[in-house]
Computed example of a mutant assay.
Amino acid sequence: MRLIFQHEGRFCLLGTPRQCWVPRGSRPIVGARLQRQDLFAFAAVSTHDGVIDSLVLPWANAETMQVFLAEMARRHAVEFIMMVMDQAGWHIAGHLDVPQNMRLEFLPALS
């Protein structure tokens, strides 16, 4: 059996407005559109031996959580996995198909 603690983090690249040149006395008309790019790092660590598994995915939702669970089950196919996680919406989605060699345990709400 492998005890694993899972969490995900969001990494964001936020564009910044730049200066522009205009003739003296005129006012620039430039749209101030900030662009944002997000990536989510799903990670799980096994505390007894320090093994870390991670995936970088474009979103954090039930579908990407399913991809992460399937990948964890594949990487540790010969072991039974007890995965501890918080109760994020995509963790407790009703349509998650938990692999047979895995059990999910949830931390108490707001802990």
Score class of each variant (00 low, 15 high):
G94H: 13
A32N: 11
W21S: 06
D49L: 02
E63G: 06
A41Q: 06
V67Q: 14
L39I: 12
R27E: 12
G50R: 02
P58Y: 05
A41N: 11
R36W: 04
F106R: 08
L39F: 04
W59V: 11
V98Y: 02
A43K: 12
T47N: 08
G15R: 05
P28S: 00
E79I: 06
A41M: 09
E63W: 10
Q66G: 13
H7N: 15
A70M: 08
A32I: 07
S26M: 03
D53N: 01
V98G: 07
D86C: 13
G15C: 01
H95Y: 13
L57M: 10
L107C: 09
S46D: 12
I29R: 08
L3E: 01
L107A: 06
L57T: 00
T16I: 13
T16Q: 15
C12E: 12
V45C: 04
A41S: 10
A32H: 09
R24H: 04
A73T: 07
A70F: 08
A109T: 07
F106Q: 04
G89H: 02
D49A: 06
L69Y: 04
E63V: 11
E71W: 13
M102Q: 00
G25E: 07
A88W: 08
V84L: 11
P23A: 03
E8N: 09
W59Q: 15
L34D: 10
T16H: 12
T64I: 06
Q100R: 13
T47Y: 07
A73Y: 04
H7K: 15
L69E: 06
C12A: 14
D49W: 05
T47E: 14
R27M: 02
C20S: 08
A43N: 10
V56Q: 07
S26P: 00
G94P: 04
V84R: 00
Q19K: 13
D97S: 15
F68P: 01
Q35G: 08
C12S: 14
H91F: 08
N101R: 11
F68A: 03
Q35N: 01
A32E: 00
H91Q: 10
V67W: 11
A73S: 13
I52R: 02
A32G: 00
V22G: 02
Q35E: 08
F68M: 10
G31N: 02
E63H: 09
E63T: 10
N61L: 02
P23T: 04
G9N: 13
A60W: 06
R2F: 06
F80N: 03
M82A: 14
I52T: 03
N61H: 09
M65N: 03
L69V: 05
Q35P: 07
R103A: 13
A43F: 03
L57D: 05
E8F: 13
A88F: 15
F68D: 02
S26K: 11
A70C: 14
G9M: 12
R74V: 03
L13I: 09
S26I: 03
V67T: 14
D38H: 01
G9R: 09
S54C: 09
Q37Y: 03
M65D: 05
E71L: 09
D86G: 00
V51D: 10
S111E: 14
N61A: 05
N101L: 13
L104E: 06
V22D: 01
V22Q: 12
N101S: 12
A73C: 06
S54D: 02
L104W: 04
